[in-house]
Simulated scan of single mutants.
Amino acid sequence: MTQRFRTSRRALAAAAATAALTLTLAACGSDSGSGHGSGMDHSATPSPSASDDGMASMPGMEPVSAGNGLAAAKDGYKMVSTAATVPAGKASAYRFAITGPDGKPVTGFAVDQTKRMHFYAIRSDLTGFQHLHPTMAADGTWSAPLATLQPGTWRLYASFVPDGGAGKGKDFVLSRTVKVSGMAMPDPLPKASGTATVDGYTVTVKGDPMAGMAHQLTATVTKDGKPVTDLQPYLDTYAHLTAFHQGDLAFAHLHPETEVDGDHGGPALSFHAQFPQSGNWRMFLQFQTGGRLHTASLTLRVG
């Protein structure tokens, strides 16, 4: 992990300290998954806005505070899309662009964790997690290949670092909402638990995080009661951790401090974590073994 990466990510976490966040984890064995036990739970509770950021209310562009991933625009950069709905029952491509302070589509993005754009989808009940890497056309239009979405309200996040202009080198997380038609069936949020299982692996998270303070979390991966030591690098790290607030779907992106050294990571991974508010957080931990990506999720209670 590069020093710039650590610094920028901690700066993002610090900026998010003004937002109300909560977060929890369930288990899923792929980027898309299905059902509560797999990290693809589905519910229809609308995600409330945090506060007004001065933007006009438009479909998919609710007025919310910047700095927590809930704003569609920040510091002159804006996530724009003509899509306010996504079809139900089938995979689809979500197209969007990032415009800069000059109003033109941005086409220069820095590589961050091996990708120029990270894209996330989550339903309003914190189910259906997807982590994708869209492709960009020459005109700056990105296309994210969404797996099937269940009915309800979804929030879609774009995480990027401009490679030029006023925002060069700065981390941004912008988001919009979309509707998926049909009868949404809410799933209750699982209770807080320090353990999750996925694909035969057990992930145990330990730590006593307190809101507004930096703490260390340790995630340990075992299989059949034995320590796992063959974790492979995934996006330049041994584990990728994404968190969402239970009430408003605010976004937090945490990464392990463990250095990558070949295909023998684990069993313990240390994370620098800073949660701006107490409550439940829904966290999704992604790791790779034998060329297969696993996604575990569990509920973490922050005091």
Rank of each mutant, 00 (worst) to 15 (best):
M283R: 13
L23K: 12
P186T: 01
G279N: 10
T82M: 14
V64R: 12
P151S: 01
T222L: 05
L235Y: 05
R10A: 15
A13E: 04
P101T: 12
L149M: 12
D248S: 08
L231Y: 06
V221D: 02
L217G: 02
D52Q: 04
M79E: 06
G303K: 13
Y234M: 13
Y201H: 03
M213E: 11
G37V: 11
S30L: 00
R4H: 10
V228K: 03
G291W: 03
L269M: 09
G89H: 12
R155A: 07
V302L: 03
A196F: 06
T22A: 06
M58V: 00
T258K: 02
D53T: 01
H118S: 00
D75E: 08
G33E: 02
L174T: 01
T2P: 00
A192D: 11
Y238M: 09
K170F: 08
T22G: 15
A27C: 00
P190A: 05
S47Q: 08
A239T: 11
P233S: 13
R95E: 04
P276A: 15
A243D: 10
F129P: 01
A273M: 06
Y157D: 01
V161N: 08
P209N: 14
R123M: 04
S81D: 01
T18P: 09
Y238S: 10
K90G: 15
V106E: 05
G29T: 03
G100R: 00
S43L: 07
L293K: 09
E62A: 14
S175T: 11
T24W: 14
A16C: 03
A66V: 13
K115A: 11
M283T: 01
Y77I: 03
H294R: 12
D208G: 07
F251P: 10
N280G: 10
R10F: 14
Y238V: 13
P105S: 05
G39I: 04
A121G: 02
G290Q: 04
Q113E: 14
L70F: 09
R10V: 05
M79T: 00
L285C: 06
G89V: 10
E259R: 12
G207L: 04
V205L: 13
